[in-house]
Amino acid sequence: MSKLSMPIPAILPANSAFQTEFLPNPFTPINPVMAGTEQPDPFHRVFATLLNHTNHTLLQAEQHMTELEAGQDNLIETVMSVQKASQTMNMLIQVRNRIVEGYHETFNQQV
């Protein structure tokens, strides 16, 4: 089975309630004043934007692969989108691992 024929699972389904309610669009600036709610901390905004961007690239790669199977898309564009999705997913995994490592270091400190 070739790498292109394997489906890439998205982190969140397209137009999911979590995605539209909690995660900002990575391509639009974050509104500094949220209507009637408390402003999330900068780490939350950065991580949510990273998660949303990763999900977006995975969904794009999946769409390119579907179009390629139907004979409508260019092979080069499909390979590039799959590589981009792979790299963003690896980056997200590395960020998660660093966060978990920092949590464990903080948790194991003696007071």
Rank of each mutant, 00 (worst) to 15 (best):
T28K: 12
T88M: 10
E101I: 02
G36S: 10
I8T: 13
Q87S: 11
E62T: 15
K84H: 10
M1K: 13
T20Y: 01
N108G: 00
A48R: 00
T37E: 12
M1C: 13
N15P: 05
R96G: 13
E38S: 14
H56M: 14
E77W: 03
L4N: 03
P9A: 01
F22G: 09
N25I: 10
Q87T: 13
I99D: 02
F18L: 13
M1S: 13
A14Q: 06
K84A: 07
E69N: 11
Q94M: 04
L68K: 01
M1H: 09
E67D: 12
F18G: 10
F27I: 02
V46A: 14
L68G: 06
L50S: 09
E101V: 04
A61N: 11
G71P: 11
P42D: 07
L12P: 06
M6L: 11
S86D: 00
S86E: 00
N97F: 01
D73N: 09
A70P: 10
V100Q: 04
M80S: 07
T78W: 01
T49M: 02
L23M: 14
A35L: 15
T54N: 12
V95K: 04
T37Q: 12
I99Q: 05
R96W: 05
E38G: 07
V79R: 07
E67P: 02
A48N: 08
M6Y: 03
M34H: 09
V79H: 04
Q39G: 10
R98P: 00
L50G: 13
E38V: 15
L92A: 15
H56K: 04
V79K: 05
T88D: 06
D73I: 05
Q72L: 12
P32Q: 03
N97S: 04
G102D: 04
Q39I: 15
V33M: 13
M6W: 06
A10V: 11
L59N: 07
I99C: 02
V33A: 15
